[in-house]
Design a protein around this nucleic acid. Sequence first.
DNA 1: CGCCAGGCGGGGG
DNA 2: CCCCCGCCTGGC
Length: 270
Amino acid sequence: MIIANAKDFDLQQTFECGQCFRWNKLCDDKYIGVVGDFLMGAYYRDGSIIIECENEQLAKEYFDIEKDYSEMKKRLQCDEVMAKAISAGYGIRLLKQQPWETLVSFIISANNNIPRIKKIIELLCQTFGNEIMKDGVKYHTFPSAEALANVDGDALSAIRCGYRDKYIIDAAKKVATGEVCLDDIYSLPADEGREILKKIKGVGDKVADCILLFAYQKYDVFPKDVWIKKVLHKLYFVAEKDIDLFVRQKFGKLCGLAQQYLFYYGRQTL
DNA sequence: CGCCAGGCGGGGG
DNA sequence: CCCCCGCCTGGC
């Protein structure tokens, strides 16, 4: 798949803005990731972005290829700060990730750091996922809820995720039994989706909002982590308790995308 | 050694 | 309801 018009798409920004954990850069400027049951590659050639995947439909959906970012940027561009943030992260695209993988990944992300989050997720896939062979290299899919619901007690200790192991098991059981139906959330308003997700142990407001934004394209949620709180305080002089009202009034239905630009900008400059 | 990292759950006020 | 503390683990 070739994306000729790549002006609103930068691979490094998209893969390293914090929304995903399973894309890795190879030495030759190529990114490799696993999405669903498929391996994907992404790289530049002659000013275009090339996405390699045996399942082109999956790749189109995952990269949300039809989405018009220039139009959304125009709508967000309401002041000096956001103008700078958008220009810093001009090539960020919000990926359409799989709900189950996103759920578990952000449970693991709580009170944790990015290198360790990636390590734990990789171990989880190696230990419980299916193998994909490509050019003599082994890759692994993200394990299903059913697969994880059936692992016994301390088998998860192998992935070194600490106290989060019981949250992952709780999530797997509730999703596998249907007590929590992740597919329902696509068509629900963000507030209702958040309440469903929070039935799972280890999922609070912040984790739920990341799942709503990164898996369900609920652009009207604004995940509030420690970094974005610092950024808003520093750049907009907004106190923590006023964040929700502030971003709703300022950025409206696209506040989730605004969060990504501000987050990326803040991590570069603050 | 102590502290912290992209929160959360549980207990007490 | 709000506030506060402890938490697996690995890196500094």
